[in-house]
């Protein structure tokens, strides 16, 4: 009867397998990133950042792409932050147990599961065609804003939920109205958590490609956008375009652009995690 020994072997065998699994994804990602760095880091120079796209791989740059990304980031933030935070406040502070709020809640859970490319189809019909924005920055920003709205709403609610009730009661007790309490007490107390959610949502928007392809963002834009109504490209679009070309020179360009994109994504995520940790410490009153 040496089942015990067998069971113990299985147990420790699994343990090492599981530790391997835990690091597997991260190791693979590290390998990928090292590959990319080897391939692309030499390509990044001042010229690469300040050149317009070109048919010749060695002359092509990402000026239009990163300025497009910056535009999109700014416009998407302008649209999504007020809407998302307001909706979050409504659901958490006003909408308890009312019919409308519960419909909105189920709806948000569903929206969060809709594939991003479907938002592209929505943007194509509503913003590009019906509202006649064309394949402009504005159409792109509205589309992405709707895409990340559920993330911001959920983050806002979570952050508000974490604010202790006593703070609200103290404010009400001094004769403040509901909105005064929210504006002067609850919202500032929850701001760290809300900000974390906003940054994570925007970092998602920066990395999105599919919906922008559908609304007709172009891979080849020979000028820097000056107004929100201009046509545009963004870093992921530029990467996608370069990856799709057979010449090795463009693959190198894609790798270089990926380094810039990952840098932006990781910095945004890093800031979000930093803020979250800082805020979580503070919220333990």
């Amino acid at each position: 009867m040496n089942n015990t020994l067998k069971n113990r072997l299985i147990d420790s065998g699994f343990k090492y397998f599981a530790i391997f699994c835990t690091f597997f994804g991260l190791i693979v990602l590290a390998i990928f990133i090292i590959q990319i760095l080897i391939e692309g880091v030499g390509r990044i120079d001042w010229g690469f950042l300040t050149s317009l796209p070109s048919r010749r791989a060695s002359k092509a740059g990402i000026l239009t792409a990163w300025t497009g990304t910056a535009w999109i980031l700014g416009l998407t933030a302008l649209i999504s932050i007020p809407l998302g935070v307001a909706a979050g406040i409504y659901l958490e502070e006003y909408g308890k147990k009312n019919r409308l709020a519960s419909i909105i809640e189920v709806n948000i859970a569903n929206l969060a599961g809709v594939p991003s490319i479907i938002y592209g189809l929505l943007g194509l019909e509503i913003f590009v065609r019906t509202l006649n924005f064309g394949g402009s920055l504005l159409a792109g920003a509205f589309t992405l804003a709707l895409l990340i709205l559920p993330i911001i709403i959920v983050a806002t609610r979570e952050a508000l939920k974490a604010v202790p009730k006593s703070l609200r009661e103290a404010s009400f007790g001094m004769g403040a109205t509901k909105w005064q309490t929210i504006w002067y007490q609850t919202l500032p107390a929850a701001s760290g958590g809300i900000l974390t959610g906003i940054i994570l949502a925007l970092s998602r928007a920066v990395g999105e490609t599919a919906p922008l392809i559908v609304i007709g963002a172009l891979a080849y834009v020979p000028f820097v956008a000056r107004t929100p109504m201009d046509e545009f490209t963004v870093l992921p679009m530029q990467i996608f375009n370069w990856v799709s070309r057979p010449q090795h020179g463009f693959i190198v360009n894609a790798a270089a652009a990926i380094i810039i994109l990952l840098l932006i994504t990781f910095v945004m995520n890093g800031i979000a995690i930093y803020l979250r940790n800082k805020w979580q410490k503070k919220v333990n009153w």
Binding site: Y90, N110, I118, L122
Partner: peptide, 22 residues
């Protein structure tokens, strides 16, 4: 309160929009 709930309604409009377009 009405302004805030309108923001919430945007999410419903989004769903309606998606379904309508498709």
């Amino acid at each position: 309160e009405v302004a805030l709930s309108t923001s919430g309604l945007i999410t419903i409009l989004t769903s309606v929009g998606i379904i309508w377009v498709l």
